[in-house]
Write a protein that binds this DNA or RNA. Structure first.
Lengths: 158, 158
DNA sequence: TGTCATAAGATGACACAACATACAATCCGA
DNA sequence: TCGGATTGTATGTTGTGTCATCTTATGACA
């Protein structure tokens, strides 16, 4: 098996493992990893539209996350508000319960990152980030992530 | 967004992007990436059982790939043979058409690896492999990959 | 040898993930 | 301003991906 093939499968395996761990921790909250990603994004961005959310989701990049939001609405974590202005749009916002859940999600993710920090030395992390950025540059998921990072730094800026 | 969070999403994005490219190339053959992985494994291992195949699949690690095989059988690429010995088992083998398809899949994967080679310098690949191995060590997908690499080297050995 | 735990495979259920299509609201150019 | 293109959302379809459960065959042990 050549090195690049091995790398491809290792990336798949790492993704699966991260998801598996996250899923185990999120299950008691009745959440899936995809739902938690949406919650985090909605926690950081006030009144996104459905398309706006879809453009920041790394999972489900490309299509609109209508059904993902359906389940969050059913769970009482998200509200669909009629768009101000354009009547085709909806504006998404976290409910009170959704905001509480988002805090718990953050704590669970922090646990995962501690686990990763224990397994990976810092410089190795920076190297991987650089390499993976070149791989994903220009791809739908890569663009989604860039948009998301962009919006996150906006929030932390003064 | 902290570095490990970014790494987690980059791994997800890289996996999605690899899948997307592969899917585009495989679609004309009527195959999905998961199906192509199974074909490749069955091409390298004679008369695996369903569980045996499942233990080498990085995608779908954990459960048995009964339904994945269903579709390959329907497409006429794989045969389910009654197990010799244990009557609960089935033994999987590629049909003639399956063997041809597996050759074409190999060519398509080779294209993808050329694409990756163009984007990633060699030492960076080796670094990532080392880092990702530590992340996936002991996980179901990581174990599946180890098993698969093990069986592949067996084949190329004298 | 009878019985009970275990293993292989199939299948039901639910949630993605990616494609396509449908429908209504908006936009834009003649 | 009218009519067609475009956009935002919803939904149908197919194929995973994961968990749970079922059936049958095997194995182990009293």
């Amino acid at each position: 098996m050549n090195h690049l093939e091995q790398l491809r499968y290792l990336i798949l395996a790492a993704q699966r493992e991260g998801n598996r761990v996250l899923q185990q921790e999120l299950a008691p909250l009745g959440l899936t990893p995809a739902q938690s990603e949406a919650l985090r994004i909605l926690g950081e961005n006030e009144s996104l539209t459905l398309t706006g959310l879809g453009e920041m989701l790394v999972c489900e990049s490309g299509t609109n996350p209508s059904r993902l939001v359906d389940r969050l609405v059913i769970s009482g974590l998200v509200r669909r508000n009629p768009g101000s202005g354009d009547r085709r749009q909806i504006e998404l916002s976290l409910t009170e319960s959704g905001r509480e859940m988002e805090v718990r999600v953050r704590a669970i993710e922090a646990q995962l990152y501690e686990l990763m920090a224990g397994a990976l030395p810092d410089p190795s992390v920076m190297d991987m980030i650089r390499a993976l950025k070149t791989i994903t540059a220009g791809s739908p998921s890569g663009i989604a992530l860039t948009r998301r990072i962009g919006s996150a730094t906006e929030v932390t800026k003064p």
